[in-house]
Amino acid sequence: MALSAPSAVNAQALSKKANRNRKEQGIGIFLLIMTGISVLTTIGVILALTSETVLFFASPEVTFREFFTGTEWTPLFAEAQRSFGILPLLAGTFLITAIALLVGVPLGLGAAIFLSEFATKQVRRLIMPILEILAGIPTIVLGYFALLTVTPFLRSFLPAVETSNALSAGLVMGFMLLPTVSSISIDAMQAVPRSLREAAFGLGSTKGEVTLRVVLPAAFSGIMASVILAMSRAVGETMIVTLAAGQKPNLTINPFETVETMTAFIANTAQGDQEAGSIGSLALYAVGTMLFLITLFLNILSQDIVRRFSEKYE
């Protein structure tokens, strides 16, 4: 019969289908390219940091030995007085990080225990978004808060506290870390199976004992991961320390004194007009590399803890 008619339709349908396939392929390629941007970002970060850092160490003024063991950091001074020991910046960073963790971990963990174990569902639903706002306050706002409210308060009863000091920056940063620690810890504690809690209750444990001796140990890996992530945040946090902790590299463990962190050095140097390629500009990248490596290490460690130590139930 009319064999030609269907075949004509088929030819049309086929070309339509071929068109459609081309379009589909094009879309797939477009999506892949867009995904590639995040890979390019990583490459860009590594390229920017390494190329300038290599130039930094290639400069005759700088030696590896001095960079890692020197106790003076004055790369922006006149040529004769420059020295490139990163220890004061590292000390400043870790002093503030330690204070922040001392404040933020107990607060975050406490909030997590309350919200996960004691709060009713309604209370949790009300409090969680509010804590999210705490995480969303721009750090420049917290920096001003540390500088203008916390520091004067501390100075009112601790006269030894300097106008810029590690303590107030660390205290405020601790509050900034609260939601980081609590949200991940809550997830970890909620993931502890009901059966474990019920077994403990069945053995006659009180609510407090179940929380401290069953839920917390079972959620330990998640809590550790949250603490390390918080540490990474604290190391990388910039505006609070730039505003409240000061701009003077200082190798000290005295929290009342002015210190400069790695991030504060980067922020302070970059806003000035350091000529591209000058030793000051190169030092910025070298410090950036250090910062990047530390935070990357902490992030990987945090992910690794979750993967390796997370209890598998069932």
Binding site: T41, T42, T238, T295
Partner: peptide, 16 residues
């Protein structure tokens, strides 16, 4: 890992 890179390092990337 990108999600954990500090914002100031993104600044360095942008600058470079």
């Amino acid at each position: 890992n990108l999600a954990g890179v500090p914002s100031v390092v993104y600044g360095i990337l942008g600058l470079y």
